[in-house]
Deep mutational scan, measured.
Amino acid sequence: MAAGGDHGSPDSYRSPLASRYASPEMCFVFSDRYKFRTWRQLWLWLAEAEQTLGLPITDEQIQEMKSNLENIDFKMAAEEEKRLRHDVMAHVHTFGHCCPKAAGIIHLGATSCYVGDNTDLIILRNALDLLLPKLARVISRLADFAKERASLPTLGFTHFQPAQLTTVGKRCCLWIQDLCMDLQNLKRVRDDLRFRGVKGTTGTQASFLQLFEGDDHKVEQLDKMVTEKAGFKRAFIITGQTYTRKVDIEVLSVLASLGASVHKICTDIRLLANLKEMEEPFEKQQIGSSAMPYKRNPMRSERCCSLARHLMTLVMDPLQTASVQWFERTLDDSANRRICLAEAFLTADTILNTLQNISEGLVVYPKVIERRIRQELPFMATENIIMAMVKAGGSRQDCHEKIRVLSQQAASVVKQEGGDNDLIERIQVDAYFSPIHSQLDHLLDPSSFTGRASQQVQRFLEEEVYPLLKPYESVMKVKAELCL
């Protein structure tokens, strides 16, 4: 049975990233139509530049190519590739079939990587351009969430054990800070992308030097003109047959890092959902379990974690691919890159769409948070109580021993009897502590235990987050809708 299948058929496997999760716009960027249309555009740009620099290419040939950029006979191309065992030459023939007058000058002087690699770089750039505003929107939604809850005390956790208090907004800023680093890295790697350009079979530009009869300047002009037509500021000066596969490492490393950030955020949300302090959106008709109707599973956060793990592992592909590119190139890269580049971007696209949807509907339960604080705060307040007693004339050592005994009794009630923490009640009825009984409410005010959390939130948002989001103001209103 021949390899390949009808990918629109229910009898043929289709990647869930495309069929179930990723956005239509990201799927289109990695589609065959987008790819092969870009090949034709690159052939047109090459012909236009070659004509401008004096090669015998007519206006009629150029116009014929322009008129057929979208006229792609995919069936013919597939048949040609089956016959020739070469995808680029299959599309040269297919393009030439609908451009008979231009057929002889299509791909003039070029090698397969002229269309293959340059198209990949265009796709990487455009895919990054799709991700950047999506990530900015996630940051914006979380920034709104953090600002609104900047002063809401909550129990902090280290080692997932109760620690000092923080605020809900401050905790959210930990998430935002990681995503801001990801946004900066995505922008950097996007701006650092260079075009492969017009380089020939081993990167020496020998074929173009021959076409222009040894004119170095025209060869350099050709490279520059096509690079500018493709919208790049610069091209690699040095290439082998391909652009260095280190570029793929750079791009997928940034995406993998984004995956790590999203995994951490969504894990926190899942843990908070278990504590009943916070939940992701839950639709009115949504079913959490087929057997347990009360369940409210954090399905979206779980999906993000599941896909983020996949995204983090994909960076190993370009690392290994770059390491086995012998001399000017081997074909070890080809099949692998067809999979890992598309999957990385479709996965990143999915987790950003999902995280935006989550961040637009996060639900906080202040009463649950308050109750958990009441359970733990008495123990945390013991040092403040000791200091207040010393100020009232008591002995630190005597007070410490009193607190120690009462704390152990209260802990026994919590752990052995399943009761509430009654340390404060014990202190309130103990005559030894009568000098500070009137101060206990103040000493137990949760806001006095959150330090500068709310001020940190305000400063972080104003100095770091809002300036970073400013270039994306025009796209901030787009909502994230999930079908599944």
Rank of each mutant, 00 (worst) to 15 (best):
2 A>Q: 09
4 G>A: 10
5 G>Q: 14
6 D>L: 13
7 H>G: 14
8 G>R: 13
12 S>D: 01
16 P>S: 13
17 L>S: 13
18 A>C: 00
19 S>G: 14
21 Y>W: 05
21 Y>H: 03
24 P>Q: 14
26 M>I: 11
30 F>E: 07
30 F>L: 09
33 R>F: 08
36 F>K: 06
44 L>E: 12
53 L>F: 05
53 L>K: 08
53 L>G: 08
54 G>M: 01
54 G>N: 01
55 L>S: 06
57 I>P: 08
60 E>A: 03
64 E>Q: 08
64 E>M: 13
68 N>G: 08
69 L>T: 01
70 E>W: 05
71 N>W: 07
76 M>I: 10
77 A>H: 15
79 E>Y: 10
83 R>T: 09
84 L>I: 08
84 L>A: 04
84 L>T: 04
84 L>C: 07
89 M>R: 04
90 A>S: 15
91 H>E: 12
98 C>I: 10
103 A>P: 01
106 I>M: 03
111 T>S: 01
112 S>Y: 02
124 L>F: 15
137 R>E: 12
137 R>K: 04
139 I>R: 02
139 I>E: 02
141 R>K: 11
142 L>C: 04
146 A>H: 00
152 L>N: 10
157 F>I: 14
158 T>I: 04
162 P>I: 06
167 T>E: 01
167 T>L: 00
169 G>Q: 04
169 G>R: 09
171 R>V: 07
174 L>Y: 01
176 I>Y: 03
176 I>S: 06
179 L>R: 03
180 C>G: 07
182 D>C: 02
182 D>F: 06
188 R>F: 10
191 D>R: 08
194 R>P: 14
196 R>D: 01
197 G>S: 10
198 V>P: 11
199 K>V: 02
203 G>N: 05
205 Q>S: 08
205 Q>Y: 02
208 F>Q: 01
209 L>Q: 09
213 E>L: 10
224 K>T: 13
227 T>P: 12
227 T>W: 05
229 K>T: 07
231 G>M: 07
238 I>H: 15
241 Q>T: 00
243 Y>R: 10
245 R>I: 04
253 S>L: 14
257 S>W: 10
258 L>Q: 04
259 G>E: 11
262 V>M: 09
263 H>M: 10
263 H>T: 10
266 C>D: 01
268 D>Q: 11
269 I>V: 01
270 R>T: 15
271 L>F: 12
272 L>Q: 09
273 A>C: 12
273 A>G: 09
273 A>K: 06
275 L>D: 03
275 L>C: 06
276 K>I: 06
278 M>R: 05
281 P>N: 10
285 Q>G: 11
286 Q>V: 04
295 K>S: 13
302 E>I: 10
305 C>V: 02
305 C>L: 08
307 L>A: 13
311 L>K: 07
314 L>A: 10
316 M>Y: 02
317 D>G: 08
320 Q>M: 15
324 V>A: 03
327 F>G: 09
327 F>H: 01
327 F>N: 12
327 F>L: 11
333 D>W: 15
333 D>I: 15
341 L>H: 05
348 A>P: 07
348 A>N: 13
348 A>M: 11
349 D>P: 04
351 I>P: 02
351 I>K: 03
352 L>F: 02
353 N>E: 01
354 T>G: 13
354 T>D: 06
357 N>G: 12
366 P>T: 00
367 K>M: 10
373 I>E: 11
377 L>V: 09
379 F>K: 11
381 A>G: 15
384 N>R: 10
384 N>A: 12
388 A>H: 00
388 A>L: 11
389 M>N: 00
395 S>E: 04
400 H>L: 06
405 V>T: 02
408 Q>S: 04
408 Q>V: 14
408 Q>F: 01
417 E>W: 11
433 F>I: 15
433 F>E: 08
437 H>V: 05
441 D>R: 06
443 L>N: 11
445 D>S: 15
448 S>D: 14
449 F>A: 05
452 R>F: 12
452 R>S: 12
454 S>C: 12
458 Q>E: 04
463 E>V: 14
466 Y>R: 09
475 V>E: 04
478 V>D: 06
